[in-house]
Design a protein around this nucleic acid. Structure first.
Lengths: 273, 273
DNA sequence: CTGAAAGCGCTAACAA
DNA sequence: TTGTTAGCGCTTTCAG
């Protein structure tokens, strides 16, 4: 025998299947005596309703489950977005399926497809694709402009935008006077590299994404922040608006960015270089 | 009309329902001509199988979905565990429902119950509870001992274990000579507090959990690490062993800890105090 | 190789 | 207030 079903409960309580259904779903039009018997049977058998079966028959056809596809569930930005989405979802009795795309469009596509087979009510994704499901796209391109502008305003003309290959930058014949780091891990790598080379007070640095100890480093690190919590809340809000079918709702969430000047980004290039 | 069903595809392709089922499930005992017609109909209608319905009828009764309950999906440790679990799950074609408990047992209980209604195949949880589902518990208590021992070995007798209330510690009549910080965010708060009070070279600090910039602070922060990736992989491995019904598998995963001495934890108490 | 019938666990619509 | 019947979309079983 597998898990007990509604039928088992009905038999045990000596009532009809439908009465059990009513009690389980909290309908108030059931005789208190019967309801008590049903609840006793539920407890005795360890019965738990099967949401999959109920959703199959139900009219609204909602699974009360959404998907969230982020670059990397382990990364600080994705993780914070995820949590914010979770909180919004929880408030609505909705569960969240998570997935990391590693910025691979094919993987994102596969995950969307897989979630669709599960009949998720909608999808939030940090990418640029569009899918044929209720969905909200988080656009993370913003922020680069702001960082670049800041460095230019401080006199820099040779600015490196660094992804992964941190050390290659310093091997260039005409090395940059300023660095814009593409993510938090990269920013920290750059700090480490600058120290090793004794350049920490000579090369400017702006990081994309804030991190907890940024203000405690020397020099403190200037960053362009994108509030992941606000982003997640906004995306979830827009998605649920779509799902609940009111207004169409926003399909793209752009993240407002803020530059926090702390020192490293305000270093000026050496004159006469 | 809602989404097209297998019946719609069958009608469109001029075959029986069962033939569509065979093609969709990749059975090879179908005439290639019929299979091609079915595939064409699937594409034309934009048909997608309904996993919920199929799981209802299927014999193995697996949802191919597990739940992961962590302290905080946004926290670095939880997030890294989550990602590792996701990777293990993906390799098995399993999806992951995530949930933050904020270390509230009631909330953990509620989430387990909710996931059980969805018939998840199992649950991983970072807590100390046990549930009547295939499950693996991650025990995070370890590490405290190791940190304490380290500080005592360096001569400390008044050691504060700090959770949240960072500032209260310094208001004590007889303040500690060493601090053990319970989590990464707390560690960073303590660093900040020590600096504000000019105590950064006088009070020892050991943090539970490593963080990316720990070695770049001054003094660099001594930490007790728990490898979240290894933890997640181990927990997922143990859970899938249970689910696949081979050996019973471990029900509790203890995280091996390592102390990384970087400076802050090796400060000795002022003599004669 | 293909199909018809039954039924997974549950809720909708209707009847008593 | 309670129960009966039908059927959600799919897989199983068994017959052709």
């Amino acid at each position: 025998m597998g898990r007990p079903t509604m039928n088992d409960v009905a038999r045990n309580a000596g009532v009809s299947l439908k009465t059990v259904s009513r009690v389980v779903n909290g309908e108030t039009t059931v005789d208190p005596g019967l309801a008590a018997r049903v609840r006793a049977a539920v407890a005795a058998l360890g019965y738990r309703p099967n949401l999959g079966a109920s959703m199959l028959r139900r009219n609204d056809r909602r699974t009360r489950m959404i998907g969230v596809l982020l670059t990397d569930l382990a990364g600080p930005f994705s993780a914070a977005v995820h949590r914010a989405v979770e909180d919004e979802a929880r408030a609505r009795g909705v569960h969240v399926l998570g997935g990391s795309t590693d910025d691979d469009p094919q993987r994102a596509q596969d995950l969307v497809e897989a979630f669709a087979r599960r009949h998720v009510d909608g999808v939030i994704l940090m990418a640029s694709a569009v899918v044929d499901l209720p969905s909200v796209v988080i656009d993370r391109e913003a922020g680069i402009d702001q960082g670049m502008r800041h460095l230019r305003n401080h006199g820099h003309r040779r600015i490196a935008f660094v992804e992964q290959e941190v050390h290659a930058v310093f091997a260039l014949p005409d090395p940059p006077t300023a660095i814009l780091a593409g993510s938090t891990p990269v920013t920290i790598e750059v700090v480490r590299a600058l120290r090793e080379r004794g350049l920490r007070d000579r090369v400017a640095l702006v990081g994309l994404g804030d991190f907890p100890a940024a203000d405690l480093l020397e020099p403190a690190v200037t960053v362009v922040t994108q509030d992941p919590g606000a982003t997640g809340r906004a995306a979830a809000g827009a998605l649920f608006e779509q799902i609940d079918g009111g207004t169409p709702g926003a399909r793209t969430i752009s993240i407002p960015t803020t530059l926090i000047a702390r020192g490293s980004g305000e270093i000026r290039p050496a004159t006469g270089s």
